[in-house]
Design a protein around this nucleic acid. Structure first.
Length: 475
RNA sequence: GGCGCUAUCGUCUAGAGGCCCAGGACACAGCCCUCUCAAGGCUGGAACACGGGUUCGAAUCCCGUUAGCGCUACCA
């Protein structure tokens, strides 16, 4: 006997940003969740650019969004599709609703609508669109119709309960009477967001709508539209907002909000992805560093937190540091080169990877790795920092003496032995012979080579900077 | 104002009635390690918003209060 349970169709999800700005971390996380869900279920991830706001949408923004997603490793299976190309279908859907009596023509002009608004304001009651009270007389409608006056199409919201089981929030319900009859088609024939979204999601056979919490109040309107269009609504999952440290919605005044900003700051995509995933979602245990594979395997919409999360840059940096020390230098090569180029550093002909390896354990960002790499390149100018200066002052005469001692010992190391063990031995022997503390000989070398008092172990530093350059810097 | 959502350490969170006088991580403080700084290890302070129920028993279920957020456009 074969099973007669029909196969569950593979989910189709979408990320639908509007190209009116950069890819923000909130959008990036929404995209991530959609992507994770698609990858876990073997579903399809559709990328749709909602460019119907022609005033604010630009191609440059679209490109930035695409770049941001690629950087994060979020590949899409279909698209990018552009909402602007489906205007005919949107209009047809509106006309159909009109023909079926589920929507109606609204001949009210902007001025007349404003008049109602002012009236409400004067009476100190909130403005609501009222189908009966604001209706034009039949004669007036006929007159405007005959004159070919422009009209918008309004959806007649049915007075009934509209409820759904949100995959992250559980049951949410609204009353149709709390919703105004909203416009679905402007008088210029273009669709309003709520209609465009529903029309597209139906046409693209989207099964799960995973989007930001700011859309929950659009959901009842959209469900009403699905019903009116004779379609079953998809599963909705509303993921919480991301807040700034002050508990307010994350915005520019909180600093970097675009994923490109973090790329520039030297955050690794893997760290960003991990951090974003854990902002609102948890694998259910105490794991912090979660690989992509684990995320895909363990992801679930139900495990998404229903309250907003504060974006903590300090934790992002910590996580980035974890990835930095975990990743082999070869994988850091390109990001470091990118930063070096941003810094205008000539790195060509230098063997970067050994330096990256020596330096990455002490950095939390790629930028900081690049800065350290730059100072270890041959010919780099050594600038003493405050701590380096302080050490020189503190040691006084001894600084020069110890440095000379160290230099002599190191100069005696044959080029072929310029390696970790012999270098360390040379320095230790010198300290012992002269009755000096190890630090007294190590620190001056460190300051001479880097300008500061902080670096990898001195023998590694010497190895990475090279014999000739090291001796030159100690002169 | 109306409607909706939300409420565990400063922050991210674990927790789906007894395993919790609440666990982990970031941040913070101290100690260890150590040529410096990271890393790592150890230790410490730090939370179930409030009030009522339900129950033998509630961080967990219900109701209310308070607070925060979202929406309330011919924007998306």
């Amino acid at each position: 006997m074969t099973s007669d349970i029909p196969p569950i169709p593979a989910p189709r999800v979408r990320f639908a940003p509007s190209p009116t700005g950069y890819l923000h971390v909130g959008g990036a996380r929404t995209a991530l969740f959609n992507w994770l869900y698609a990858r876990q279920t073997g579903g399809t991830f559709v990328l749709r650019i909602e460019d119907t706001d022609k005033e604010r949408s630009t191609e440059a923004h679209t490109q930035v969004i695409l770049d941001g997603m690629s950087w994060l490793g979020l590949d899409w299976d279909e698209g990018p599709l552009f909402q602007g190309e489906y205007a005919d279908r949107h209009r047809a859907d509106a006309e159909r609703l009109l023909a079926e009596g589920k929507a109606y023509r609204d001949y009210l002009t902007a001025q007349e609508l404003d008049g109602w608004r002012e009236q409400a304001k004067a009476a100190k009651i909130p403005f609501r669109f009222n189908r009966q009270a604001m209706a034009l007389s039949a004669d007036e409608v006929a007159r405007r119709q005959a004159a070919g006056a422009p009209y918008a199409i309004r959806f007649a919201v049915p007075d009934e309960e509209i409820a759904w089981t949100d995959a992250v929030h559980g049951r949410i319900s609204w009353q149709g009477r709390d919703l105004d009859d909203f416009i679905i088609l402007r008088s210029d024939g273009s669709a309003i967001y709520n209609l465009a979204v529903v029309s597209d999601d139906i046409a693209m056979a989207i099964t799960h709508v995973i989007r930001g919490d700011d859309h929950v109040s659009n959901t009842p309107k959209q469900i009403a539209l699905y019903r009116a269009l004779g379609q079953e609504p998809p599963v909705f999952a509303h993921v919480p907002m991301i807040l700034g440290t002050d508990g307010k919605k994350l915005s520019k005044r909180h600093g970097a909000t675009a994923v490109g900003d973090y790329q520039d700051q030297g955050i690794l995509p893997a760290a960003m992805r991990n951090f974003l995933a854990l902002l609102g979602w948890s694998p259910g245990n105490d794991d912090e560093i979660v690989t992509m594979e684990e995320m895909i395997a363990r992801f679930s919409l139900e495990a998404i937190q229903s309250k907003p999360a504060v974006f903590d840059p300090a934790k992002l940096e910590w996580m980035n540091g974890q990835y930095l020390s975990m990743l082999p230098a070869i994988e850091l090569h390109d990001p470091v080169v990118r930063q070096l180029e941003r810094m205008g550093v000539n790195w060509h002909d230098a063997a970067l990877d050994p330096i990256i390896d020596a330096v990455k354990a002490r950095a939390r960002t790629v930028t900081s790795v690049a800065e350290q790499v730059a100072t270890r390149l041959p010919g780099a100018t050594v600038v003493r920092d405050a701590k380096g200066e302080a050490l020189v002052a503190k040691m006084g005469e001894q600084f020069t003496t110890c440095l000379a001692l160290a230099r002599a010992a190191l100069a005696a190391v044959p080029p072929g032995d310029w390696q970790l063990a012999p270098l360390e031995a040379a320095l230790k022997e010198t300290a012992e012979r002269e009755g000096l503390k190890l630090g007294d000989v190590m620190q001056p070398v460190r300051v001479a080579l880097t300008g500061g008092t902080v670096s990898e172990p001195v023998n590694e530093l010497l190895a990475v900077v090279g014999r000739e350059e090291s001796l030159r810097r100690m002169r």
